[in-house]
Protein backbone atom coordinates (compact mmCIF):
# COMPACT_ATOMS: atom_id res chain seq x y z
CA UNK A 1 0.00 0.00 0.00
CA UNK A 2 1.12 3.51 -0.64
CA UNK A 3 -0.24 6.72 0.65
CA UNK A 4 0.13 10.30 -0.39
CA UNK A 5 0.53 13.44 1.59
CA UNK A 6 0.81 17.18 1.11
CA UNK A 7 4.59 17.14 0.82
CA UNK A 8 6.73 16.31 -2.19
CA UNK A 9 5.98 16.23 -5.93
CA UNK A 10 2.47 17.13 -7.02
CA UNK A 11 0.29 14.78 -9.00
CA UNK A 12 -3.18 14.97 -10.45
CA UNK A 13 -5.38 12.65 -8.50
CA UNK A 14 -8.67 11.99 -6.86
CA UNK A 15 -8.89 11.45 -3.16
CA UNK A 16 -9.81 12.73 0.21
CA UNK A 17 -8.76 16.27 -0.65
CA UNK A 18 -7.70 18.15 -3.77
CA UNK A 19 -4.44 19.42 -2.39
CA UNK A 20 -1.02 18.59 -3.79
CA UNK A 21 0.25 15.24 -2.78
CA UNK A 22 3.21 12.92 -2.57
CA UNK A 23 3.43 9.15 -2.50
CA UNK A 24 5.07 7.04 0.17
CA UNK A 25 5.53 3.31 0.44
CA UNK A 26 5.19 1.55 3.78
CA UNK A 27 6.65 0.79 6.19
CA UNK A 28 6.00 4.40 7.09
CA UNK A 29 6.03 4.82 10.83
CA UNK A 30 3.68 7.17 12.57
CA UNK A 31 5.15 10.63 12.74
CA UNK A 32 7.93 9.65 10.39
CA UNK A 33 6.85 11.15 7.08
CA UNK A 34 9.64 13.01 5.39
CA UNK A 35 9.92 14.57 1.96
CA UNK A 36 13.02 12.49 1.27
CA UNK A 37 10.86 9.37 1.45
CA UNK A 38 8.49 10.55 -1.26
CA UNK A 39 8.41 8.62 -4.54
CA UNK A 40 9.34 10.49 -7.69
CA UNK A 41 6.27 9.27 -9.59
CA UNK A 42 2.86 7.93 -8.66
CA UNK A 43 2.91 4.17 -8.12
CA UNK A 44 0.74 2.04 -10.36
CA UNK A 45 -1.04 -0.03 -7.83
CA UNK A 46 -4.57 -0.97 -7.01
CA UNK A 47 -3.55 -0.82 -3.38
CA UNK A 48 -3.00 2.90 -3.41
CA UNK A 49 -4.76 4.77 -0.66
CA UNK A 50 -4.84 8.55 -0.81
CA UNK A 51 -4.98 10.66 2.29
CA UNK A 52 -3.65 13.89 3.71
CA UNK A 53 -0.36 13.74 5.60
CA UNK A 54 -2.07 14.68 8.84
CA UNK A 55 -4.32 11.67 8.46
CA UNK A 56 -1.43 9.36 7.68
CA UNK A 57 0.32 10.49 10.83
CA UNK A 58 -2.69 9.67 12.96
CA UNK A 59 -2.52 6.64 15.21
CA UNK A 60 -5.34 4.79 13.52
CA UNK A 61 -5.14 5.46 9.79
CA UNK A 62 -2.35 3.29 8.40
CA UNK A 63 -3.13 0.17 10.47
CA UNK A 64 -6.79 0.54 9.56
CA UNK A 65 -6.13 1.08 5.86
CA UNK A 66 -3.78 -1.91 5.77
CA UNK A 67 -6.31 -4.14 7.50
CA UNK A 68 -9.10 -3.07 5.19
CA UNK A 69 -7.00 -3.51 2.05
CA UNK A 70 -6.02 -6.97 3.17
CA UNK A 71 -9.68 -7.89 3.50
CA UNK A 72 -10.34 -6.42 0.05
CA UNK A 73 -7.98 -9.05 -1.32
CA UNK A 74 -10.04 -11.94 0.04
CA UNK A 75 -11.63 -14.05 -2.68
CA UNK A 76 -15.38 -14.51 -2.97
CA UNK A 77 -16.50 -17.23 -0.60
CA UNK A 78 -13.90 -16.27 2.00
CA UNK A 79 -16.31 -17.43 4.72
CA UNK A 80 -16.44 -20.94 3.22
CA UNK A 81 -20.00 -20.07 2.16
CA UNK A 82 -21.25 -17.48 -0.31
CA UNK A 83 -19.81 -14.22 0.96
CA UNK A 84 -18.97 -11.82 -1.86
CA UNK A 85 -15.65 -10.05 -2.30
CA UNK A 86 -15.15 -6.83 -0.41
CA UNK A 87 -14.97 -4.13 -3.03
CA UNK A 88 -12.38 -1.42 -2.84
CA UNK A 89 -15.06 1.27 -2.95
CA UNK A 90 -16.41 -0.04 0.34
CA UNK A 91 -12.97 0.33 1.90
CA UNK A 92 -12.51 3.83 0.50
CA UNK A 93 -15.90 4.97 1.72
CA UNK A 94 -15.26 3.50 5.15
CA UNK A 95 -11.91 5.27 5.45
CA UNK A 96 -13.44 8.52 4.26
CA UNK A 97 -16.19 8.34 6.87
CA UNK A 98 -13.78 7.40 9.64
CA UNK A 99 -11.44 10.23 8.65
CA UNK A 100 -14.24 12.69 9.26
CA UNK A 101 -14.99 11.30 12.70
CA UNK A 102 -11.92 9.92 14.47
CA UNK A 103 -9.24 11.90 16.24
CA UNK A 104 -5.48 11.73 15.62
CA UNK A 105 -4.96 9.76 18.84
CA UNK A 106 -7.83 7.34 18.37
CA UNK A 107 -6.57 3.77 18.62
CA UNK A 108 -6.73 1.63 15.48
CA UNK A 109 -9.90 -0.44 15.44
CA UNK A 110 -10.00 -4.14 14.71
CA UNK A 111 -11.31 -4.62 11.18
CA UNK A 112 -13.43 -7.64 10.35
CA UNK A 113 -15.20 -8.66 7.15
CA UNK A 114 -18.98 -8.87 6.87
CA UNK A 115 -20.72 -11.57 4.85
CA UNK A 116 -22.50 -8.90 2.82
CA UNK A 117 -19.22 -7.63 1.36
CA UNK A 118 -18.52 -4.93 3.89
CA UNK A 119 -16.17 -4.25 6.75
CA UNK A 120 -16.73 -3.57 10.43
CA UNK A 121 -14.48 -1.44 12.60
CA UNK A 122 -14.62 -2.30 16.28
CA UNK A 123 -12.97 -1.22 19.50
CA UNK A 124 -13.20 -3.09 22.79
CA UNK A 125 -11.37 -0.84 25.20
CA UNK A 126 -11.90 1.95 27.70
CA UNK A 127 -14.89 0.15 29.11
CA UNK A 128 -16.57 0.41 25.72
CA UNK A 129 -17.59 -1.92 22.94
CA UNK A 130 -17.92 0.19 19.79
CA UNK A 131 -18.80 -1.15 16.36
CA UNK A 132 -19.18 0.68 13.06
CA UNK A 133 -20.47 -1.42 10.20
CA UNK A 134 -19.91 -0.40 6.58
CA UNK A 135 -21.81 -2.40 4.01
CA UNK A 136 -22.07 -1.78 0.27
CA UNK A 137 -25.82 -1.45 0.03
CA UNK A 138 -26.79 -0.04 3.40
CA UNK A 139 -26.17 3.01 5.51
CA UNK A 140 -23.27 2.74 7.95
CA UNK A 141 -24.40 1.77 11.44
CA UNK A 142 -22.79 2.51 14.78
CA UNK A 143 -23.34 0.86 18.14
CA UNK A 144 -21.89 1.70 21.53
CA UNK A 145 -22.05 -0.50 24.59
CA UNK A 146 -20.78 1.45 27.60
CA UNK A 147 -19.81 -1.13 30.19
CA UNK A 148 -19.10 1.54 32.80
CA UNK A 149 -22.26 3.54 32.30
CA UNK A 150 -24.25 0.39 31.61
CA UNK A 151 -25.85 2.03 28.61
CA UNK A 152 -26.20 0.87 25.06
CA UNK A 153 -27.36 2.48 21.85
CA UNK A 154 -27.15 2.07 18.09
CA UNK A 155 -28.17 4.00 15.03
CA UNK A 156 -27.19 5.37 11.66
CA UNK A 157 -23.62 6.64 11.72
CA UNK A 158 -24.36 9.91 9.92
CA UNK A 159 -26.95 10.99 12.45
CA UNK A 160 -24.88 9.97 15.49
CA UNK A 161 -21.45 11.39 14.72
CA UNK A 162 -21.31 13.87 17.58
CA UNK A 163 -22.64 11.29 19.98
CA UNK A 164 -19.98 8.85 18.88
CA UNK A 165 -17.27 11.49 19.11
CA UNK A 166 -18.07 12.05 22.76
CA UNK A 167 -16.64 8.57 23.43
CA UNK A 168 -13.41 9.01 21.47
CA UNK A 169 -11.26 10.04 24.47
CA UNK A 170 -11.89 6.54 25.82
CA UNK A 171 -10.70 4.99 22.57
CA UNK A 172 -7.18 6.36 22.72
CA UNK A 173 -4.19 4.07 23.02
CA UNK A 174 -2.57 4.08 26.44
Amino acid sequence: MSANAIAGPSFRRRGLSDRDCAYFVPPTHVGDLSRKDALSSPPVSNELIEADAALICSTWFLPTARSMLRLARLPAGWDSRGAPRIERTVVENALLLLAGILEVQTAPPAIVPTVSGGVQAEWHMGGLNVEIEFNPSAEALVSVDDLQGRSEWEGALRSNIERLQSYLPRLESA
Binding site: D79, R81, G82, A83, V112, T114, V115, S116, Q120, E122
Partner: peptide, 12 residues
Amino acid sequence: VSSQAFCNSTGE
Protein backbone atom coordinates in the same frame (compact mmCIF):
# COMPACT_ATOMS: atom_id res chain seq x y z
CA VAL B 1 -15.46 -13.22 18.67
CA SER B 2 -16.82 -10.35 16.61
CA SER B 3 -20.56 -9.97 16.33
CA GLN B 4 -20.05 -10.50 12.59
CA ALA B 5 -19.46 -14.18 13.32
CA PHE B 6 -23.14 -14.45 14.20
CA CYS B 7 -24.47 -13.61 10.75
CA ASN B 8 -26.63 -15.73 8.53
CA SER B 9 -24.83 -17.07 5.49
CA THR B 10 -25.21 -14.88 2.42
CA GLY B 11 -28.62 -15.27 0.84
CA GLU B 12 -29.78 -17.66 3.53
